[in-house]
């Protein structure tokens, strides 16, 4: 059991900055099952948003709407002031590793290079600049030595590092991560959030996580999604969120965190 930090890294809120993400009245359903109902969210550039919520509550759907992979039934989505489609080349995405084929015949280096693909260059080989950039990033996440290994021979944490390098290779202004701490060891989890805090100096970070213990140290804002969305600029996890999420705080409870956060909330 690791020790909890005394305060959430609240920091000065970048209230004057332009919006990174703006959702207004977003509705989404799969076939006839509503997944998101009337979701609104305004996130400023430079923010670090943690998205929590129960499984099946719509976290990944929300992320895919922000990425433009899914179209909402109703409502508007603006990413960096543009439509998600127009903003695509300005965002990075780290998907859940469990959604990818582990036995796929591809090396770590080849995966990281995918971040340098763009519409402008179908059919052209990667340039010197692309390769230098990817080398720098693989070194940064500590995967350069293992660059020629097949993805199937890497551990969960190593795969995650490669996917982060791939996302960073796009030079993102916003970085979206879906459960980046799933299937990785505890040690890497700490490294991961340190790396994200570091990246947050330049980019907006949006991370889905089930593990509120680690997230609380890094995030500036928290949103809880369970069909509806509750958003708090400033990182507090409110009693309202926990009541709504109900099923999600398994991890919260396991880490003994709600008490602390709720106390914090009561004080506020």
């Amino acid at each position: 059991m690791k020790t909890m930090p005394d305060t959430i890294r609240a920091g000065p809120q970048p209230l004057d900055k332009p919006l990174a993400v703006e959702l207004k009245g977003v509705w989404f359903s799969y076939e006839r099952t509503p997944v998101l109902t009337d979701v609104s969210l305004s996130l400023r550039q430079g923010d670090f948003l943690g998205i929590i919520g129960p499984n099946g509550g719509g976290k990944t759907t929300l992320l895919k709407i922000m990425l433009g992979l899914l179209k909402p039934d109703r409502g508007s989505v603006r990413i960096l002031g543009d439509t998600p489609l127009e903003a695509r080349h300005r965002v990075g995405y780290v998907p859940q590793t469990t959604s990818l084929n582990i036995s796929f015949p591809v090396s770590a280096l080849e995966i990281a290079l995918m971040g340098r693909l763009s519409l402008a260059r179908p059919g052209r080989p990667y340039s010197r600049r692309d390769r230098d950039k990817v080398e720098e990033l693989l070194r940064r996440v500590g995967m350069w030595e293992l660059r020629d290994r097949a993805v199937g021979t890497l551990s969960g944490g190593q795969r995650q590092r490669v996917l982060i390098a791939r996302a960073l290779a796009t030079d993102p202004e916003i970085l979206f991560l879906d459960e980046p701490a799933t299937g990785v060891d505890r040690e890497f989890e700490t490294d991961l959030f340190r790396l994200l805090e570091d990246l947050n100096q330049e980019a907006t970070i949006v991370v889905i996580t089930h593990d509120i213990g680690v997230i609380s140290r890094s995030v500036r804002s928290v949103a809880c999604v369970n069909r509806r969305l509750i958003f708090h600029e400033g990182g507090q996890i409110t009693k309202e969120m926990i009541d709504m999420a109900y099923a999600c705080p398994v991890d919260l409870v396991a880490h003994g965190l709600p008490h602390r956060v709720l106390e914090h909330h009561d004080e506020g």
């Binding site: 895919k64 990425l67 433009g68 992979l69 695509r88 080349h89 965002v91 995405y93 998907p95 990818l100 084929n101 796929f104 591809v106 080849e110 995966i111 995918m114 971040g115 693909l117 763009s118 519409l119 402008a120 179908p122 791939r166 796009t170």
Partner: peptide, 16 residues
């Protein structure tokens, strides 16, 4: 290679 390994990522980086 990109679309076979991770179609969604390929879409986001603008692969047709």
């Amino acid at each position: 290679l990109a679309l076979s390994y991770d179609e969604e990522f390929a879409v986001i980086v603008g692969v047709p």
